[in-house]
Design a protein around this nucleic acid. Structure first.
Lengths: 186, 186
DNA sequence: ATATATACTGACTAATCAGTCTATATTGTG
DNA sequence: CACAATATAGACTGATTAGTCAGTATATAT
């Protein structure tokens, strides 16, 4: 990736989270990145294309962080916990990216084509857990409800530790996972 | 409340959720409400004041919907469930307002003063449950974490039923509450 | 009925926006 | 080195924006 292109993505990420899509001008993005506006439009044909690229980029970073490391030798709970912890830690350590994904996931600024691209890659991760979910100690709930609940608890956990960073330690992190786990287990 | 002022709030709510704060022009809000732009600026000094008013208005509507009807005669679980169900139903039936509150709660467009105003009124509701939480069958978790978890599960439940309205029935609603309840109970 | 305040209108303005264009610099290739 | 392709720059433009203003209509009070 070209250096200035990367600087532009970083600047756009920060500003979009802070002030929204329309609240951030292309000239401000260029200024923050330390480049000219012409350079921005050289790398991204339109502002629209910039935010689409940014969405794919952040989702890719998230996917890398939660890597598909399902271990058949381990218990289902351990596998699920590792996924949950990876996801949550990503959210805490990359709060701009996490916020961006949350905000712009259900936003009209990202074209549906881009969303589909990102979503498909995402489902690939969850498919590993689907066979783990069947015949396990988990409540019989629709897959989609389970995914929403999973994401909802991560969302609230990240929010909590962002607001109260002094509470961030292994004990409390385990406790919040137990809230999720006891909810879904039979 | 003045009729045209109400029309302006309704139009702004719809458009802000759809296209964001800066993505919606004041002329479009006025046009959607069927009034002149001058009328908008007569009722709200600035666009900023409009969104602040809207935030207080939607929070007020939410508060009314989840009314403080704690019944000491009933079990804690029943009281909590009623609050949870009122909240969730509000989110499903008033999806624009719910979305608006979620989006603009952690957004720089609402001044922190306005947020405080709304938050104070909100805490008044939760205080009724605090004494219920003590010495109950609930896990010992920080109050703030409990609130985040509470809101997180409502958020995911509303999201789920919005995406899959055909799944909306009493049985599934009870099931989703049990996910929350089993998580927090000892 | 008259006076005063409030509600409303839409044309207007200075500022700002996304995107263009022309020119210059840097890089890669043979 | 030569020369083409790519990267960078920033002044510029037509369109759009939040907010103003001068005047008109409607409601309220005495």
């Amino acid at each position: 990736m070209n250096e200035k292109k990367q600087l532009l993505l970083n600047a756009a990420l920060k500003l979009f989270v802070e002030k929204g899509f329309h609240g951030t001008s292309t000239s401000e993005i260029a200024k923050t990145a330390g480049v000219a506006t012409g350079t921005l439009f050289h790398h991204f044909k339109t502002k629209q294309e910039l935010i689409n690229s940014l969405y794919l980029y952040t989702k890719e970073q998230l996917l890398t962080a939660i890597t598909m490391d399902y271990q058949d030798s381990e218990q289902f709970k351990s596998n699920l916990k590792r996924l949950w912890l990876n996801f949550t830690h990503f959210g805490i350590e990359n709060s701009d990216m996490f916020q961006f994904i949350i905000i712009f996931h259900s936003s009209p600024y990202i074209t549906s084509l881009t969303k589909e691209q990102a979503e498909t890659r995402f489902d690939d991760v969850l498919i590993f857990y689907r066979k783990g979910i069947e015949n396990q100690e988990i409540k019989t709930v629709k897959d989609e409800m389970m995914v929403e609940f999973f994401l909802g608890t991560i969302f609230s956990t990240v929010n909590y530790f962002n607001k109260h960073p002094e509470q961030l330690n292994e004990k409390n992190m385990n406790l919040t996972f137990e809230l999720f786990w006891d909810g879904i287990s039979k």
